[in-house]
């Protein structure tokens, strides 16, 4: 359930919501971190639920000593009202048995908040691509019919590649072979997309094929791709370091090395 951090609940009506799916390499979560820290977004509330594994930490986006001591929870909502942008950051894995419940919670929250559109950032296992998917860009998109109605032109102009439907039974070459949508390693991405299609929600999925490892470059790729559509930052590609890396990204590969080793 959404709990406001201020006394008055924030107005999120007609905002664009960007949220990550907890997926391969945590690429989407890293990309959302870049959005929050670069656009200086403000915390407006929490999604308090039993579907996420509890965790807590100090301010992941602190810029100075004064704001470092500030408690942050597994799922938080940030806004940039001047951009009409809201972001839901998820910092913990979903408890496996509760992923369906979590999807329902998110879908009903999206409905009650009145977001004009929702963008799910996600990733999928690179090693499970089929032949056609291995050619060209690793980025894909998906839109629900209700968003396609309003954004068809914009998407056409961007020239993005839609996520391919894969044959349900590879190898069978019948003319009417069944095909299905498959996003391996994408967590709740596919479920959220199909739920939104059924509920007629305007929602898009932007995903990237990748593998586990140092996923920081992937996060930049994904956030730049999102920016091509939403224009949150002007020309970030000209100035490659315009996205601000938050301090919480430090020590991604563990602590310092003992000096006695050398």
């Amino acid at each position: 359930m959404f709990i406001s951090s201020e006394n008055a609940p924030p107005s999120l009506k007609d905002f664009t919501l960007v949220m990550p799916a907890v997926a391969v390499g945590n690429v989407a979560q890293l990309a959302v971190d870049l959005l929050v820290s670069t656009l200086n977004m403000k915390l407006v509330g929490y999604i308090h639920t039993d579907c996420l594994i509890p965790m807590a930490g100090n301010n992941p986006y602190s810029t100075c000593r004064e704001d470092a001591e500030e408690l942050h929870t597994p799922a938080e909502v940030y806004t940039a009202p001047e951009l009409k942008l809201a972001v839901l950051q998820i910092r913990a894995p979903i408890i496996q048995k509760k992923s369906k419940k979590f999807r329902q919670l998110i879908v009903s929250w999206i409905k009650t908040s009145g977001f004009s559109r929702t963008v799910i950032l996600s990733s999928s296992h690179a090693y499970q691509r089929d032949d056609q998917q291995m050619k060209g860009t690793p980025l894909r998109y998906l839109v629900t019919p209700s968003l396609l109605k309003v954004s068809a032109d914009a998407l056409k102009e961007l020239g993005w590649r839609e996520m391919e439907q894969l044959p349900a039974f590879p190898g069978l070459t019948e003319a009417n072979a069944e095909s299905r949508l498959s996003i391996p390693g994408g967590g709740i991405t596919k479920g959220l997309y199909t739920d939104s299609c059924a509920e007629d929600l305007p929602l898009a999925v932007i995903l990237l094929f990748c593998s586990e490892g140092d996923n920081i470059p992937d996060a930049f790729t994904l956030v730049n791709h999102l920016n091509d559509w939403l224009h949150l930052l002007d020309n970030p590609s000209q100035e490659p370091n315009k996205w601000k890396i938050p301090p919480s990204w430090s020590l991604l590969f563990g602590s310092g090395i003992p000096p006695a080793m050398f």
């Binding site: 907890v22 997926a23 391969v24 979903i94 496996q96 967590g187 709740i188 991405t189 586990e212």
Partner: peptide, 8 residues
Amino acid sequence: VYSRAVEE
């Protein structure tokens, strides 16, 4: 590394 992604 184990993947944090839940098989859908």
